[in-house]
Design a protein around this nucleic acid. Structure first.
Lengths: 216, 216
DNA sequence: ACCTGAACACCGTTCAAGT
DNA sequence: ACCTGAACACCGTTCAAGT
């Protein structure tokens, strides 16, 4: 009777909301249910278990990425098109900072992710890659094709307290000198413009691949 | 009286053993205690909490890596030396397949990891990098400097069942064609020689960096 | 000082019962 | 068909008590 109207979609949408707000650590079946105004056990009528919720999270994010990628300009050669695609995917992931961590535990089983990489491979095929180089290119890009890479320090722009840096200083003289040298730097390890760094690494790989393609 | 003689070191060594056998998922305070023939609460006299155990795990693995890297041949220029260093680190990580996942949740706070990257940066400095390019190089390498990168499919050599591949086939035509084309391939997604793929990606980045260094 | 049992506040999940 | 309360088998961790 005009009841709750719970559904798999509603559950997953709520799960994304919970994760966006508090990270995957905050995502519990009980908490998720509460955010839907329902009892925890009701969720099990729409998803098999928590693993299925996490699988669903990947699906939702991949759908957002596919939507962002769908309307993209394909001109300017494979490299330019790939660059646009990756940076569009990255923008989606930046809205869901918990997503990379979830992806890492499930790539390999997700059809949505496989489809995305299929599109990436198609783009390279059109650009003149044979399957062997395309295959290696996929591995060389790795998660960068989806717009993320492991950060070394202070992953999510976390500020490292000044005294922790001081305590480290004598053990990592080169890192300290590097920070001091950085024109854009304060004395924190979280100073990096990670977008610029991401693009640098991406271009390094794309340029390398283009060189190999041209030589093949 | 010749008692248990528990210590932080013993606890961490046992924790590595548990993780090696069953993954981090199998690592619980209660289970860890049992593997030491002790009550769970005894652990808290030697480590602050579970987070501290995970921090310690990183320390232990980094110590293994530093030991492996210490005796390495430094000849042949920065690129050759770096390649040897990264592959030596990778060998250690292959013995602890759970380690990358733990690293990803704590790089940024680990002094041991910072020290390792300090060494990597030192190597590049000696090879003629200025701090700015060295900085970018660290980000471009990312976790590859430690010997691991995100795998796209079947992360740990997990075999994807044949029927799952068949179900995917119509949605990922290029991936299917790529697999069919692969000379070394059966019809599974887990076919890759991931060591060769890792080295390909590593060399792509190292070659790109050397080009930039030489031009600078 | 180090170790322990009982207890607390959480988890995911099962099951039998409700409507 | 969908939702629920109680219960089970786990967690990490605190606390007061033992030696």
């Amino acid at each position: 009777m005009a009841g709750s109207g719970l559904s798999r979609e509603l559950v997953l949408r709520a799960a994304v909301g919970v994760a966006d707000e508090g990270g995957v650590g905050a995502l519990t079946m009980r908490g998720l249910a509460e955010s839907l105004g329902v009892e925890a056990m009701s969720l099990y009528h729409h998803v098999a278990n928590k693993e299925a919720v996490l699988d669903g999270l990947v699906e939702v994010v991949m759908a957002e990425i596919e939507a962002a990628v769908a309307g993209l300009d394909g001109s300017g050669g494979w490299k330019a098109a790939m660059r646009r695609r990756v940076l569009a995917a990255r923008e989606v992931l930046l809205r869901h900072p918990w997503a990379p961590g979830v992806f890492e535990t499930r790539t390999g089983t997700s059809l949505a992710v496989a489809k995305y990489y299929d599109g990436v491979l198609a783009l390279m095929r059109e650009g003149g890659f044979d399957y062997e180089l395309g295959h290696r290119a996929l591995h060389a890009l790795g998660s960068r094709a989806l717009g993320f890479s492991q950060e070394l320090f202070a992953p999510d722009g976390v500020e490292v307290p000044e005294d922790a840096v001081a305590a480290m200083a004598e053990h990592v003289p080169h890192l300290v000198a590097m920070i001091a040298d950085a024109s854009h730097g304060g004395a924190v390890l979280g100073w990096c413009d990670s977008q610029a760094e991401f693009e640098f690494g991406l271009d390094l790989i794309l340029d390398g691949l283009e060189r190999l393609r041209a030589a093949s």
